[in-house]
Deep mutational scan, measured.
Amino acid sequence: DLSALRVEEVQNVINAMQKILECPICLELIKEPVSTKCDHIFCKFCMLKLLNQKKGPSQCPLCKNDITKRSLQESTRFSQLVEELLKIICAFQLDTGLEYANSYNFAKKENNSPEHLKDEVSIIQSMGYRNRAKRLLQSEPENPSLQETSLSVQLSNLGTVRTLRTKQRIQPQRTSVYIELGSDSSEDTVNKATYCSVGDQELLQITPQGTRDEISLDSAKKAACEFSETDVTNTEHHQPSNNDLNTTEKRAAERHPEKYQGSSVSNLHVEPCGTNTHASSLQHENSSLLLTKDRMNVEKAEF
């Protein structure tokens, strides 16, 4: 173990290094160091905050020279020094078990990766560091076993998940096959086929009936047209017969005018059967003409 005197000496050296690497504005270890034209180094955030307070150039807090945003430059070497100082402080805390008085939040800088452990060898070769390295080497064999167990647990979990997924996939297939086998029997399929065939026959029977009705309507229309044509021909046949009657009536009127007047009046009210309204109107006109002729003949006879 380190003596108290040596611990104090190391602590004083760390404090001196820390004062050199402090920012003059925030009085902390410089984060993202930036250098000016006057070779003074500050935190990048502190300098941008200072420049944004005034429009135009501002003055350096140490030498009062003008500073602009374009004049600022990043210093990589200074950032490396800060990183190495942080590593020294971490090693000091691990070796002594004491917390550094002016320690900052170094938890963000710590890294437990194997590459980081290899890099620590180049920091300080001390008894405390050696003991700590031995402890780490002793704890390393235990870690692979834990990793193997965790991997086995994960693989077993994956296997159970896969088996569950396969079961879920197989179950719908089985149910679907069961439904297909038990849903419709052979008799049901035959009945469905016969039902479809009967429906098709009914459709075939319905369509000819409609065509037959249309044919019957067409035949009825044709018969009505033929009947009207026969009526017209009958009226045409009746007209010459009426003319013959008129000639006979004229002759009778010349011989017996008194008797014919009474008979002509009675004939006005008689309509021949089986004739249309057109034929009756023609008869009325003929009878009126005959009456006028008879009157003329009677007057001539009187004179």
Rank of each mutant, 00 (worst) to 15 (best):
E74A: 14
C43S: 15
C90H: 03
H269L: 02
A91S: 04
S287V: 00
R251F: 14
L136V: 11
S145T: 08
R77L: 07
E148Q: 07
T247D: 13
V190N: 03
S58P: 15
N52P: 04
V34H: 09
Q18S: 12
S156I: 01
F78L: 03
C196Y: 00
F106G: 07
H40V: 08
T275S: 04
L146W: 09
T160D: 05
Q80I: 08
L5K: 08
F78V: 05
S197D: 01
P272F: 00
T166W: 01
A220T: 09
S288F: 00
C196F: 00
A301S: 14
S219L: 01
Q201I: 01
K64G: 06
S103D: 07
I206S: 12
P57R: 06
H256W: 01
P144A: 06
F227Q: 10
T211L: 01
E258K: 03
K192A: 11
D213R: 00
T207C: 14
I14M: 01
L51S: 09
R295T: 02
T76G: 11
T248D: 12
I25E: 02
A91G: 13
M47V: 07
K64C: 00
H284T: 04
E271M: 08
E229L: 01
K259D: 09
R135C: 13
K118C: 01
E148R: 05
S264Y: 02
D66T: 11
D200H: 04
K55A: 07
P57K: 02
N131D: 05
D119N: 05
R135P: 09
E8L: 05
N131K: 04
T230A: 03
N65I: 10
D231N: 07
K64S: 04
E249H: 14
P172S: 00
I124T: 08
C90D: 02
V161E: 12
P33V: 12
D66Y: 03
N234I: 01
E32A: 10
N297M: 10
Q209R: 08
D1V: 13
E115G: 03
M127I: 06
M296T: 12
N131F: 12
T163R: 09
A220F: 00
R77T: 15
R132T: 15
E285K: 11
E285G: 05
H278Y: 01
V13D: 03
L151N: 10
K87C: 06
Q93W: 12
G182R: 11
L48Y: 03
N105C: 05
D218K: 05
A16C: 04
L86E: 07
S113F: 07
L137F: 03
E8V: 06
L94C: 02
L86R: 12
S281Y: 11
L158A: 09
D213N: 09
V121F: 02
L158C: 02
E32V: 10
N191R: 02
S152P: 12
L204A: 09
L289I: 12
F106R: 09
H116Y: 01
L245M: 13
T163I: 00
L136D: 02
Q125D: 04
S71R: 10
K49P: 02
L203G: 11
I30A: 05
N15V: 11
Q147Y: 00
T96M: 15
E32R: 13
V34P: 14
L158T: 09
P57T: 09
I206Q: 00
P240S: 05
F42D: 14
D244F: 00
H256P: 13
D188S: 11
C43H: 13
T247E: 14
L289S: 01
L29N: 02
K44H: 02
K118L: 13
E254Y: 00
M296Y: 02
S241Q: 03
L268M: 14
T36L: 08
P208I: 00
I20Y: 02
K118I: 11
E214V: 14
V270N: 01
G262R: 03
Q18D: 14
Q59I: 08
P33S: 09
K108T: 01
E32C: 12
I88W: 13
N243Q: 14
E226T: 00
C63F: 14
L217S: 12
L86G: 14
S152E: 02
I14L: 11
A253P: 07
I20V: 06
A224G: 01
S75R: 11
E83G: 04
V7T: 02
S263N: 14
H256C: 03
E285L: 07
K300N: 07
H40F: 12
N105D: 04
D294M: 13
N112G: 01
L5H: 05
L5N: 04
S152W: 12
I89G: 08
V10F: 10
L155S: 13
L217A: 02
D119G: 01
P208S: 11
P141K: 06
L5I: 09
E84Q: 10
Q205L: 00
V153G: 13
P61L: 06
T233Y: 00
C60W: 14
S103I: 07
K44P: 07
S103G: 03
I14W: 15
C90W: 05
S122W: 15
D184Y: 04
T247L: 04
L62S: 11
I89N: 10
L62E: 12
V161Y: 10
E271G: 05
E9K: 13
V153C: 09
E285P: 01
S3Q: 07
H284N: 05
C90K: 09
V82F: 11
S145H: 00
C60V: 15
G159H: 10
Y100L: 09
N276F: 01
K167S: 08
S216Q: 04
E271N: 03
Q59L: 02
K64L: 02
S216N: 10
V198A: 03
